[in-house]
Design a protein around this nucleic acid. Sequence first.
DNA 1: ATAGTCAAGTTAACCGGTTAACTTCTTTGG
DNA 2: CCAAAGAAGTTAACCGGTTAACTTGACTAT
Lengths: 352, 352
Amino acid sequence: MKPKVSAKDVARHVGVSVATVSNVINNVNKKVSEETRQRVLKAIEELHYQPDFTARSLAKGKSNLLGVLLPITQAGDDESLLLKDNPFYAELLSGIEFEAGQRGYDVIITGIRPEQSLKDWVRKRNMDGVIFLGITPEPFLNELKALHIPVVLMDSHPKQGDCHSIGHDDFLAGKLACQYLMARGHQVIGFLSGGIQTSPVNLKRYEGYQEALKEAGLTSRPNLVLEDSVSFEGGYRMGLRIAQEYEKSRKGESVTALFCAADIVAFGAIKALREKRIKVPEEISVVGFDNLKTCDYLIPGLTTVDQGIYHKGVLAAGILVDDIEGKLEACRHIQLPVRIVERDSVCPPREK
Amino acid sequence: MKPKVSAKDVARHVGVSVATVSNVINNVNKKVSEETRQRVLKAIEELHYQPDFTARSLAKGKSNLLGVLLPITQAGDDESLLLKDNPFYAELLSGIEFEAGQRGYDVIITGIRPEQSLKDWVRKRNMDGVIFLGITPEPFLNELKALHIPVVLMDSHPKQGDCHSIGHDDFLAGKLACQYLMARGHQVIGFLSGGIQTSPVNLKRYEGYQEALKEAGLTSRPNLVLEDSVSFEGGYRMGLRIAQEYEKSRKGESVTALFCAADIVAFGAIKALREKRIKVPEEISVVGFDNLKTCDYLIPGLTTVDQGIYHKGVLAAGILVDDIEGKLEACRHIQLPVRIVERDSVCPPREK
DNA sequence: ATAGTCAAGTTAACCGGTTAACTTCTTTGG
DNA sequence: CCAAAGAAGTTAACCGGTTAACTTGACTAT
């Protein structure tokens, strides 16, 4: 077992006190002469000294640790990360990890599990800040606020007073997607999402969709506005219901397009439609939301609303670190731009 | 700012020393009377005391931190986690996180970046153990071995002397997949993978594939054995090459099936084939490897070799923690069973 | 009655850094 | 020429726990 080299060893080697070594490391300029600095740096190099973050963390009250809180799915007793089901979180997490690394922070992850106290989780390791992915249940959020550490909310409650938030103008995005479909001749458009009332993000997209229809003098049909879980399975179930509606509707009245508030929902819906022998996009066009890498895999490729997920993760970590390091005065509420990415899941409607 | 309650506060509140509080927390039975124990526990409850892991970590030399080392992709200067491109890693990570959490450990992630010293990364936080995902470059591995902490290798060099490893019998798995295709009448079968020589896992699958052919009295065709990156794009490129081969071959001689050593490669390949108007599975059947959730999304659903990714992650974390806690005498080398999951990407060959 | 055990704590050193306060020596200003 | 200021370090307390060694009193065995 190689003995770990500590600041004490470096100090002894150079013939100075540990305080001086510490000062060199932390760039306290006014405390150490250039010559001594060089000698210490040389010794650090030679001995392969690496400061211990645990000790530093204890002394400074700063851990250089970013907590990433991931939503979970319950499958029986096991509560596993949604990360495994929705590539969305993987892309986001990758962006966060990248930026955190660049700025000298490490990323520690956990699922948001009902039985677990997030406050305790964060506190026991003195985390410097946390990022919430996905919908953040109020109780968890409040628990964290009591800690008074920087928090970034992603696609959650926009404009939580004392947290940063990153998202998009979901109203506009929903409107955009709907208008995109209408511009191609669609008039009967369904809306598929997770809970509309439980997720502000979905609500906004829904309202945007409604607004677009209204401006075009159209109205949405209640039985084409569906809610289920934000998952492949949820999308599949909603797709089956849309297929039923499609089958029983008369010519010229049937649904010809779907706007899904998440790509993964669109994947499931498309699967269901195809199984019911409804052609996508010839019979029903589909627009998703997220622009996951996976959109390319499908046939047809999924036309969707891009939200630059990876970049969003980078941004989130950046803001969090900025705040931690005191570079931010006020809370930031960022609305990222979105854009439609055209693939092959949309075409003009044809007569039934 | 709420003042953090420490063991000292608890001690004062109960009227004992901090040592006693510590003994209660750590269940040092022989040191504290049942009555005192109860009083301390009560105080802990009342004051909402939460031991500080940073301090504990420093004192014990044990951090309860598991490092997960993720492979990266280089795109220009940015080296982002492969996690964002291949759902495989997300499933694995989810499994790891779950089991780690159950056993009282936290998970900290990083990419394996050439310029970064993994040894330093692990050492500076006193991590208790690490899990390597994907191919592990030797230099990185050796660097870590010098630390003498438990290491689990996933799908990497099988049987690295002093590390645990988890994988499958890839030879058998490759053979199985190939036999599955042959049992359905295929005789000309391609093999698509990442580097065969650079990845022992791919090599084994390749050898299994060869063996199966040989046993059936068939031989593989060199121009149907392709290598590229393990990615959607790599699969796409290989798919295009297969399409070319298909077009120029004569009836009865053309490739009728592909065995892809990773699902994500299969996704890309199918996309390419479809774009070239080659029907899957009618003209070319495809078998993948991994059984990602995403296999369900595609149309046709991908028939593949299941390796229970999530469970593999759970197992990895379990072994790592077992070792950390001294419950393991020797290195474990686990070969998980695999099985074919049938979906819709395979059918008997038809005359061209 | 007396040494030896044991239960139940306490004390204090320690983990590896950070940092406020102090020292010592040199320089500068009036 | 002497006080004040500044440069370059050092000392020691501290962060919040853990743990080996020690204490104290009660109980047991001889």
